[in-house]
């Protein structure tokens, strides 16, 4: 029952041996120390005195603002009309997240087979040709590029192209998640048991038939699971993309914050948390159904 001991913490000679992993942990610790030294003593920052009573009192009064302390009138989070309006924005945000997940899923479904090494250049490849290997490289590079750039930055670029609304935000989320979903699913294909595929191949099935009857059915359940996990991340990010792409809760959040309508900020945060919770529950239910 014992897991195999890893070199990280078990060494043969009795004293700790420097392996790649323990070296990496040491490098990480050194980086952390450097980063903190830079933050605390760095010349490029103006001096703030973060650890001071002033910071604490400012944070405390901000929390009071969020609760609506010292402000006449009903706070927004107790106002029915404001709730309904924020609820409408929450619905738009939800639509944006579904749109994003859907577009990302379609993109990933169309490409992931070309990003699996075993299908393109390994034992399942019909022809060992440099063209196929190159195509594999291109798709993998596309995935890396699309997921390296964060959603918000894609949104900043896309608002110059598309009319404001939920579409640029949804596309930005979709591009980023396309890369993640595609890579994850391609890795599922690479880890599949290839015996059914080879059995089909030996009984005369062509490349397309092997893909359709041996690989897709085995990879799709995992793909669906990943899709729902990504949806949980996407709903958290829709508000962020909305900050620049003029759609849903994000835009209203930014406006309220810059106009110091702090009780509206609280209301929007409540709706945001409700959305996140709702999507988490829905995703868990769907993942159970998919199993």
């Amino acid at each position: 029952m014992n897991p195999a001991p890893t070199a990280a913490y078990v060494s043969g000679s009795g004293r700790p041996r420097l392996t790649f992993v323990s070296g990496s942990v040491l490098v990480m610790l050194a980086l952390m120390l450097t980063a903190w030294t830079y933050i605390v003593f760095g010349q490029s920052w103006p001096s703030h005195g973060f650890f001071s009573g002033e910071t604490a009192s400012r944070a405390w009064s901000f929390l009071g603002d969020l609760a609506g302390a010292g402000r006449e009138g009903t706070p927004a989070y107790l106002d029915g009309a404001e709730w309904a309006e924020a609820g409408r924005l929450a619905l738009v945000t939800l639509a944006m997240s579904v749109l994003a997940a859907g577009i990302a899923a379609m993109g990933a479904l169309l490409t992931f087979m070309f990003a699996a090494r075993n299908v393109m250049a390994g034992e399942l490849a019909p022809y060992r040709s440099p063209v196929w290997t190159a195509w594999f490289g291109v798709v993998r590079l596309g995935y890396a590029l699309s997921r390296s750039v964060p959603e918000l930055i894609w949104a900043m670029l896309l608002v110059f192209i598309f009319s404001p609304g939920i579409l640029p935000g949804a596309l930005a989320l979709a591009i980023h998640n396309f890369g993640i979903l595609g890579k994850l699913t391609a890795e599922v294909v690479e880890g599949l048991d290839t015996r059914p595929a080879r059995a089909l191949r030996t009984s005369g099935a062509g490349w397309f038939q092997v893909i359709a009857y041996a690989i897709l059915p085995a990879a799709l359940p995992r793909f669906i699971t990943y899709l729902f996990y990504r949806w949980e991340v996407i709903i958290r990010t829709t508000i962020v993309v909305g900050l620049v792409a003029a759609g849903g809760l994000g835009m209203e959040f930014r406006i309220s914050l810059s106009h110091f309508h702090y009780t509206t900020v609280t209301l929007l945060l409540i709706w945001y948390l409700l959305l996140v919770l709702g999507v988490d529950l829905a995703s868990a239910a769907m993942r159970r159904l998919a199993r």
Binding site: M96, V98, L99, F160, S163, I166
Partner: peptide
């Protein structure tokens, strides 16, 4: 359903 959330009236592109 989520496609209905897009405002198509103003055109997709700027």
């Amino acid at each position: 359903l989520s496609l209905l959330g897009i405002d198509w009236s103003e055109g997709v592109f700027r």
